[in-house]
């Protein structure tokens, strides 16, 4: 029912779904969506975990302030947050100008409406989520375990890999799931920073539903998005359960 518009036959939606899954352009959009979401997920975990670890373990009173600074963006409008990248990456933007001034390039390169722009925008959006999920996981691990591992001769890196990361894995999986699902379904960022040259499933969905008013295809796109999200959250709860029993 969720995907059946009142005056479109269900058969038509599946017909469109079949067309989309064979059409090279649509496949490219799906591939781009998954690829960018994966890239953002990896970046958010790689940046978010160390930040969370540092925030949870630092004895400094500044860590409270930095935690608040990391959480605050979650309350701020995505439009406001994404708009900043237009100023930085735009044709007269700060980064392009900087590169020219430093003599690295002659003409400011095209930065907006690229994959890089979307990755930066989505990382900004979802890094706070990754930090919070990892933070609550790290905070639950007894710091005494780190010390014990060190005391027994484990180096800093070995302690990290064999003690801290395995113990915080459930939190890391939750972080990755939230970031991936968020990136697959985000609209504001690909709309403002990707434009029409870097279409993702969400911007396509809006296009079909609102601009071309092709509801069967919009529903088919929605179906693909939903399956992707549920697939990943199912997979992550499976990993979570396996981790809990082993």
């Amino acid at each position: 029912m969720l995907f059946a518009p009142p005056d479109v036959a269900t058969g038509e939606i599946f017909a469109r779904l079949g067309e989309m899954l064979t059409d090279p352009y649509d496949l490219a959009v799906i591939g781009r969506t998954v690829g960018l979401a994966l890239a953002v997920t990896i970046i958010c975990v790689v940046l978010g975990f160390p930040i969370a670890y540092w925030l949870a373990r630092s004895p400094s009173r500044w860590s409270g302030v930095f935690l608040a600074v990391a959480i605050f963006p979650l309350m701020l409008s995505n439009v406001v947050r994404t708009f900043g990248w237009l100023v930085i990456l735009g044709s007269k933007g700060a980064l392009g100008q900087l590169l020219v001034q430093l003599g690295i390039v002659e003409v400011a390169p095209q930065l907006l409406y690229t994959k890089l722009a979307i990755i930066l925008g989505l990382t900004q959006l979802f890094l706070p989520l990754a930090i919070i999920s990892c933070y609550s996981a790290v905070a639950q691990v007894d710091p005494g375990l780190d010390d014990a591992s060190r005391g027994l001769g484990g180096g800093r890196i070995r302690t990290m890999w064999s003690v801290v990361i395995p113990l915080t894995m459930p939190g890391i999986v939750v972080a990755a799931t939230l970031v991936f699902a968020g990136s697959v379904t985000a609209y504001t960022t690909p709309y403002l920073l990707g434009g029409s040259s870097q279409r993702m499933l969400s911007t396509q969905l809006f296009n079909y539903a609102s601009t071309t008013v092709d509801w069967a295809t919009a529903s088919a796109t929605a179906l693909i998005m939903t399956v992707l999200v549920f697939l990943v959250s199912g997979l992550s709860s499976l990993i979570g359960r396996k981790g809990a029993t082993s």
Binding site: L76, T82, G84, I88, T123, Q124, P128
Partner: peptide, 9 residues
């Protein structure tokens, strides 16, 4: 991480 989160704002 902090640069990406805060500088655009």
């Amino acid at each position: 991480g902090y640069v990406i989160m805060i500088v655009p704002i």
